[in-house]
Computed example of a mutant assay.
Amino acid sequence: MFRFDWKMTLFVLLLLPVLIRLGYWQLEREAEKRDLQQLYEERQSSAPLPISGVDWSDKDIGWSRIQAEGYYETEYNFLLDNRIQSGQVGYEVLTPFRTDYGVLLINRGWIAAGPRREILPSIETPEDKAVIEATIYIPDGELMMFGEETLSGEQWPKRIQQVHLARMSEALGEKLIPARLRLSAGSAGELSIDWQTVNMQPEVHRGYAIQWFLMAAALVVLFVFFSFRRKEKPNE
């Protein structure tokens, strides 16, 4: 016999839609990641765009390949902290690359951290003029940082926790082209490169969606079980 418990009913009515919505949200994220990977593969298979023909104000140039001629500003490097490759902690090295069309900020790849925190790694940077290829990178969600990071002082390289182009431009004393670029393999200045298009594979989102839907189903089953459970007699 069904026993109505308004507290339990209210709890289920409030929680069930949340669980279902979280499941569908994970499925939406899975679809977004698959679309992003497809776009990346399409644009990586196309010929690189010359920097002279790139419209940096275009919102739809993400993951395009570009080609630029210029030289690295060898005395200026930013070290993006807490980057892990093959289980080892290190940095990603971002170096300004000067061209006739502006200064690009190039992520050259990973480098291992020093033996102690206060010892920064030695960075080899080509000094000669070079032609490089890079991909316009669109971040797929990054950790939120609390408080503003200061890049003051004369010391280089500078350790950073996140890429903030405005503050990095200020530290350099000149404006950077408003885009983040990842160096392509084989280009001058390449370090250890193992680029990932997304920080979480689409299949992982599907797994999370299944978990949320299973929790919703379990909630319904428990609600039905306790609503129809036989009422115990006092002597029981």
Results as ranks from 00 to 15, higher is better:
Leu10Tyr: 00
Val12Leu: 03
Leu13Thr: 10
Val18Met: 01
Leu19Gly: 00
Arg29Asn: 10
Lys33Val: 11
Ser45Gly: 14
Ser46Val: 11
Gly53Tyr: 05
Trp56Phe: 15
Asp58Leu: 10
Ile61Thr: 03
Ser64Leu: 15
Ile66Asn: 13
Gln67Tyr: 11
Ala68Cys: 12
Glu69Thr: 13
Gly70Glu: 14
Tyr71Val: 11
Tyr72His: 06
Thr74Asp: 05
Asn77Trp: 01
Phe78Thr: 01
Ile84Tyr: 11
Ile84Lys: 08
Ile84Ser: 10
Gly90Asn: 00
Leu94Pro: 04
Pro96Thr: 06
Phe97His: 07
Asp100Asn: 14
Tyr101Gln: 13
Val103Met: 14
Asn107Met: 12
Gly109Val: 00
Ile111Asn: 02
Ala112Arg: 08
Ala112Thr: 10
Arg116Val: 15
Leu120Met: 03
Pro121Cys: 08
Glu124Val: 14
Glu127Phe: 00
Lys129Pro: 13
Val131Ser: 10
Ala134Trp: 10
Ala134Asn: 07
Tyr137Asp: 08
Tyr137Gln: 09
Pro139Ile: 09
Met145Ile: 14
Gly147Asn: 02
Thr150Gly: 04
Gln155Asp: 11
Arg159Lys: 12
Gln161Lys: 10
Gln162Met: 15
Ala179Ile: 05
Arg180Gln: 15
Leu183Ser: 03
Ala185Leu: 13
Ala188Arg: 04
Leu191Thr: 02
Leu191Glu: 00
Ser192Asn: 00
Ile193Leu: 06
Val198Ser: 15
Gln201Glu: 13
His205Gln: 15
Phe213Val: 05
Phe225Thr: 07
Ser227Cys: 04
Arg229Gln: 04
Arg229Ala: 05
Arg230Phe: 12
Lys231Ile: 07
Pro234Glu: 10
Asn235Met: 14
